[in-house]
């Protein structure tokens, strides 16, 4: 076990391009659904238990060694929005580049070879965790955490929210992150036994719809 590697991988400064994405927060701010600390917390909680839980499960399954091709197809099926599929692949491409530099590994090389357009980011994250000597639980934590820290950081810029308040939101969400990470690891083990179709598929309708609205804007602060 190489716990310090988790800090490197989960660090917001890890150069994988995540800082350019708001995780749907920019669309929600524009639509007037996300206006303050309380609605940020609700937004993050909803995201965490839906697409966040799916991403964490995919990451845990990839770290466990399940076939990245099958996991990538499962991610596609769980992401009906073409804008979000494109974003997930772009982030996956950026992450694999940074991860290969940090933790050279043949599974990362294989990802680059097999997915010229990039694999879904959670799948890459799981493989990167494995390359770094981490396990499924670390991958799930990393995925769940960045799924809420991204929007929280973005909202500081979008709404001029107090960074202390945004961090307090993340602290309050910690028990939820614990639960989602634990469930994701259980889901990954179940997928290994019973097949990848058993992975969770929870969706958040306004995230999918909002992502398409956002992708059509001519000018925006964040890429998604």
């Amino acid at each position: 076990m190489n716990r310090a590697a988790l800090l490197v991988l989960a660090d917001g400064r890890f150069p994988a391009g995540g800082y350019a994405h708001s995780g749907g927060a920019e669309a929600a701010v524009k639509a007037g659904r996300l206006t303050d600390t309380a609605s940020l917390e609700e937004f993050c909680r909803g995201r965490l238990h839906t697409s966040g839980a799916v991403a964490a499960s995919l990451a845990a399954a990839a770290a466990l060694g399940l076939d990245p091709g099958a996991l990538d197809r499962a991610a596609d099926a769980r992401t009906p929005s073409p804008a979000l599929r494109a974003v997930a692949r772009r982030l996956g491409r950026q992450l694999v580049r940074a991860a290969r530099a940090a933790w050279p590994h043949q599974r990362l090389d294989a990802l680059v070879r097999d997915f010229p357009k990039g694999a879904h980011q959670p799948v890459v994250l799981g493989v990167a965790a494995h390359a770094a000597g981490l396990g499924p639980e670390d991958a799930a934590y990393c995925s769940a955490h960045e799924g809420v820290s991204g929007p929280a950081t973005a909202v500081v810029r979008l709404l001029g929210l107090d960074p202390f308040e945004a961090t307090a939101v993340l602290a309050r969400l910690a028990p939820d992150v614990d639960r989602v990470a634990r469930d994701a690891v259980a889901a990954a083990h179940r997928a290994a036994r019973e097949g990848i179709d058993t992975l969770p598929a929870r969706s958040a309708p306004l995230l999918e719809i909002g992502a398409e609205a956002h992708a059509a804007w001519p000018v925006r602060l964040f890429a998604s």
Binding site: S39, R47, H49, S203, P205
Partner: peptide, 24 residues
């Protein structure tokens, strides 16, 4: 498989289902 989508709402559904990411 082209689509696998699950939606949970109402009492007992994971928190945030009716929030700004879910059904708003």
């Amino acid at each position: 498989c082209l689509l696998d989508q699950e939606l949970a709402c109402g009492p007992g559904a994971p928190a945030g289902w009716d929030g700004p990411a879910g059904l708003g």
